[in-house]
Nucleic acid binder design. Structure first.
Lengths: 201, 201
DNA sequence: AACAGCCCATGACATCTGTCACGCCGGGGT
DNA sequence: ACCCCGGCGTGACAGATGTCATGGGCTGTT
């Protein structure tokens, strides 16, 4: 029996995944959590073989949860599962020690297959996404530029960003200008979009 | 037996939903589609009692698919299911003749319960979301303002918007200014965010 | 020690953006 | 017939934004 831990903030899809995986004779869902910071505790308690983590979760994000899990419960292998095939997500997931990466566009068979393969010690990655990840490369943004873009996501003025980050307005504009240049965008909003779609935020 | 049609672009959650609903003794999933424009054809073929439609789908959106379905297959009742609890989505779903509205944060029990209630002729709506929908009210935006904001989502300059909509730059700025005022925002990006979160796009 | 890279800041400049006033047109209302 | 509202456009103006040059402080590398 492969013991599986599920982490997804949406109760409906979490329950549905549990029902689907429960249909497999060799798979058993031993824990379900709805937030990233519950993952480690649940894994300690139930000692699953495989953890299926969503990226988007309230509180601690699925990728950092994966990293923590690898440290504290090394026996548990991790599959990261996400709605968006952002290249940066794959890179960060692999850097966090994940053994598998599955997009929610995949078929149910691919998911259970991924669980079995990962449990067997293999790595599972969507080849198309891997190629895109290599093509996109890793983030050209510096830490500060990333911060600025992240805060700029909800569309405030430069003054707002400066206040939020405790910076001078001129500095914010410089960081924004650099980020716009590096992302190949021509507007702040465009830069935010590019960075977000690439998984750089 | 309640015959159910599933429509969701993400194969994984679609399959998982099917597995979950299939566990119920009185529910049978008779069709699964991945796009809005396949809904009507599949419903004609399989004559389901209840259709579970996601809002976000490639091609035809789940809300317009709901409206078409109500027209062409009146015997099939509709539940709209979405990731985001946007007030405007609820309003549009009800306007499209949907009998139920379920957010993906709900529990699995709530979903199967909704299927049964809707099949029994009742209406099912999350009360909290209904309250928020009433509070938000319906879109204050005119058609053109909505169009402009929709195009402005991917962050182009005014010139880009004008070209895309075949309008004068001044007109675009006027519409944007009006939209910003009506949404209570102070930036174009903020206005886009507000309108999007309210389900007005 | 010299160097490169990043962060922070300032000042200046051209351009873009948001706002306002105004006008024209067409389709509903009463 | 009238008025109101929405769409479209122009012109003008203050303020915000993006770009550039420049400089100081800091860290890590060679």
């Amino acid at each position: 029996m492969i013991k599986v831990l599920l982490a997804d903030d949406q109760a409906l899809v979490r329950g549905a995944f549990a029902a689907m995986l429960g249909l497999e004779p060799d798979i058993e869902v031993v824990a379900q959590v709805s937030a990233g910071d519950e993952v480690v505790a649940a894994a300690r308690r139930t000692e699953p073989h495989v953890a299926l983590l969503d990226v988007q979760m309230p509180g601690v994000d699925g990728l950092t949860a994966a990293a923590e899990l690898r440290k504290t419960v090394p026996g548990c292998r991790v599959i990261v599962c996400t709605t968006f095939g952002r290249p940066g997500y794959l890179a960060r997931a692999m850097a966090a020690g994940a053994a598998g990466f599955v997009v929610k566009d995949a078929t149910p068979e691919q998911l259970v297959d991924a669980v079995r393969r990962v449990h067997a010690g293999l790595r599972v990655v969507d080849p198309a996404l891997a190629a895109e990840s290599l093509a996109t490369g890793h983030s050209p943004l510096t830490d500060r530029e990333r911060d600025v873009l992240a805060v700029a996501r909800d569309g405030g003025t430069v003054a707002d960003l400066a206040k939020a980050l405790h910076l001078s307005e001129g500095t914010v504009r410089n960081h924004l200008s650099a980020a716009i240049g590096k992302t190949g965008a021509r507007t702040r909003a465009e830069a935010v979009r590019v960075a977000e779609d690439s998984g750089w935020l």
